[in-house]
Amino acid sequence: MEDLPNNTGCKFLDLFDCHCAFGSYSAPGLKVFRSASHIRAEMDRVGIGEALVYSNVARECDTQIGNNELLRAVAVDDRLHPAWVLTPDLGSWLPSFGERVDRMLQAGVRAAYMFPTFHQFTLSPWQVDGLLSELSEHRVPLFLDFGNKHWSERLTDWDAVDAVCGRFPELPVVMVHEGLASVRTLTPLLARNPNLHVEISYFQPNTGIKVFAQEFGPDRLLFGTGMPVYDPGCPISMIAYAPISVEWKQAIAGCNLRRLLGGVC
């Protein structure tokens, strides 16, 4: 039997949640964050220091209204960091992708969320490469959420993810809310693509944090909660009790996200 570290005397994790949503939902939910203070209250309850937040209004209906509403909500809050929801809409009547990404960066936004399934677009070059080339040029981390709610769902287009990582090796790509059934697929994909990362709010193979950190290094995993839909206690406990060093835990808890956001140019 392998000896695992004895978990005594660890210090608190410096948690930076990369997956948090602000604003209303059309579906009946148990919790909603209607203000920055709502988010901070739950963060305080479970010891999360900072959070990267996107707007559910932007995801569900209107990117412009939602993204701007988010900016106003978190404008004076140094613990909440905005991420914009982007779609690859293309047309001569629209601002160019370069203008859109410039506007985002000028607003202080250093991360993008995309929802290929919900927003009904592909990751094919003819669809997304205009936008992704702008994000890649500025090293803006791209969080991809294919909308899997249960591990038995197979909504993620893994071939397309592999191709995006290969076409844009400088673009940090983060898979969001992938489940335990993705172990078989993520293992070769992480090996092939150094710019691919995994957000762990739903990634719960037994001792998976240790196995993946040892296999690929701790810098490929990012702490996320999925609040306010999902329970933050689960990923926090999983990192805290992961049989890995405190340094690796802190990397996953927040250092990796800080590094990605700090790399935006």
């Binding site: 004895n6 978990n7 005594t8 005397g9 660890c10 210090k11 608190f12 994790l13 479970v46 010891g47 591990w151 335990l180 059934a181 172990v183 078989r184 293992t187 193979p205 037994n206 001792t207 998976g208 196995v211 206690g233 926090i236 406990s237 990192i239 805290a240 009790y241 992961a242 835990k249």
Partner: peptide
């Protein structure tokens, strides 16, 4: 829990566990 402190002194019995692999999924530490 937030410190990852071993939970000595607290009786913890998991009422729903399994054992061994289940090949539709790639099991770890099973």
């Amino acid at each position: 829990a937030m410190c990852g402190e071993k939970l000595d002194g607290v009786l913890i019995i998991d009422g729903h566990a399994h054992m061994g692999p289940w090949c539709p999924l790639q099991a770890l530490a099973c």
